[in-house]
């Protein structure tokens, strides 16, 4: 509150703060009709001496700041969620190995339990991955384009992966070949257990060169 009201009052012959000389309680008595609602001219008395006024001003400022801070602090915490503890991605069964043809990319859905805030949904489709079989091994690539997260598909000539949004192109091994994608397609851990292909499904942040797990 940096404004000093004494400075701009047109009629302030005597600055208001200086009027107060008597002890504040018995301050100047202004003869007045029993208040019947007239607006009082505001410049009759000031009850507070300047030094005291300054101290009170500081107190009022500090009090206001404390009030605002007491609300702002919990608000900030509330609106900035804690980072979720990063759980080790579990392997999920996706398809039988027999169902995959040698070297042909196949897109499969990953099903699992999903937690969204307080709701836990069982056996939901979480996303999809591209699988490619080489003998008894399988490689898995995330079907999310590392650029901005669109779903990557196999191109018409079936010789590469392509993103339908911003035309990034990747080799069948996932290497970035052209387009805006900042990195190669994201490989996922895959293994074969009892004739079933299992994939550890994780999501990575989009748009950066580095591969960083999305928490």
């Amino acid at each position: 509150m940096g404004n000093d009201p004494a400075n701009d009052d047109g009629d302030a012959k005597a600055p208001r703060d200086a009027v107060e000389v008597a002890p504040p309680r018995e301050a100047v008595t202004v003869p007045s009709p029993r208040d019947a609602g007239q607006v009082m001219p505001p410049r009759q008395v000031a009850a507070v001496a300047p030094p005291r006024r300054r101290v009170l001003g500081v107190l009022v400022g500090a009090g206001s700041a404390a009030y605002a801070g007491a609300l702002a602090w919990p608000a900030t915490r509330f609106l900035t969620p804690a980072e979720a503890p990063r759980a080790e991605a579990a392997f999920v069964r996706v398809v039988r190995l027999d169902a995959l043809e040698e070297a042909v990319p196949v897109r499969v859905r990953v099903r699992g339990d999903r937690r969204d805030a307080f709701t836990v949904t069982r056996e939901l489709t979480l996303g999809s991955v591209w699988l490619r079989r080489t003998g008894n091994d399988v490689t898995a690539l995330s079907a999310e384009c590392p650029h901005l997260g669109c779903a990557v598909a196999v191109t018409e000539d079936r010789k590469a992966f392509g993103c339908p949004c911003h035309t990034s192109r990747f080799s069948l091994a996932g290497a970035a070949e052209s387009g805006p994608s900042p990195r190669a397609m994201d490989p996922l851990l895959a293994r074969v257990v009892d004739g079933w292909v299992e994939v550890a499904f994780v999501r990575y942040r989009h748009g950066s060169q580095h591969r960083e797990v999305r928490g």
Binding site: M1, P5, R16, A27, V28, T29, V30, S32, R34, D35, G37, V39, M40, P42, Q44, V45, A46, A47, V48, R53, L56, G57, L59, V60, G63, S64, A66, Y67
Partner: peptide, 29 residues
């Protein structure tokens, strides 16, 4: 304006800032 207590009417008038604002804020706190 504020309705002064009967008896103390307009005996003295002071600006809202700082003493009344201070009291309001103190109670708010």
């Amino acid at each position: 304006g504020v309705t002064a207590r009967e008896g103390a009417v307009a005996a003295r008038t002071e600006p809202f800032y700082p003493r009344q604002l201070g009291r309001d804020l103190a109670v708010g706190l």
